[in-house]
Amino acid sequence: MDIRWGKRLDLLLVYLVVVPVLLIILFPFLIMIFTSLKVSNEIFVSPPTWFPKKPILKNYIDIWHYVKLANYFKNSGIYAIGTTVLTILIALPASYATARIRFRGRMFFLFLILVTQMFSPIVVIISLYKMMAFYHSLNTYRGIIVTYSAFNQAFSIWLLTGYFSSIPKDIEEAAMIDGCSRFTTVVRILIPLAKPGIVATVVFVFIWAWNEFLLVLTFISTNRLWSLTLGIYGFIGKYKVLWNYLMAVSFLTTIPVIILFLLIERHLVSGLTAGAIK
């Protein structure tokens, strides 16, 4: 009896916390979707309308002609996936080392990483641009991917180091005593245990790269290599914002992120908990 009441009370508390926050989060997105279904002269009326009087899908068709949307999707995909892969590949060994090995210069390395985070790209954009010109990396996929990965190192290493450190050393040590090499131990045991951390890092890096604006604006000039974020700006003219199109594209842009999240969410949930019980 007591326990059941306690559980119900817990559940009530959970809903009391979750529902209002989610409603606030949902509010602008609903408006975004409703607006993307409105005809342009229904957007600026006072008082504003909630739902489109007669919803149309025309905006979603038109945008593919107005801008090279398919191409922008492709480019954004290349930037984001490339960045995610490169970042994780480079950050994993580094985080392992900083979490597990006490080497001279460890603090210096962590400090260096932290330092890089303290400079917003805005601050260094001009020097960066000059350097990219020097490396012949303007208007290339690799220029963007490498730069993005560099800016994501700090976060990834910090997060992954944190996760690696939170995993008890005993399991690895046992494996190593059993005769596994360090490399095998890391790949077979540590990395699976750190899955939630890696997954969180993947999500973060992907989303960061997917939505980045300033660097891609500065390094990419040819329309052929524009990302979605640059493409979206095609709807923000000097004198007029095409809200219905802007909202339609924005909504479409969030879909890949949501799909990624759906694919990965399972791992985020099960991840370590399952691994630790075994």
């Binding site: 954009i125 001009i126 641009y129 604006l217």
Partner: peptide, 22 residues
Amino acid sequence: EVDIVNWDSVYQKTTTLISAKQ
């Protein structure tokens, strides 16, 4: 080669390009 830039970014982009002699 046409590069179209949003007005909000024109100054930033031009300044950067001039700075790098590009």
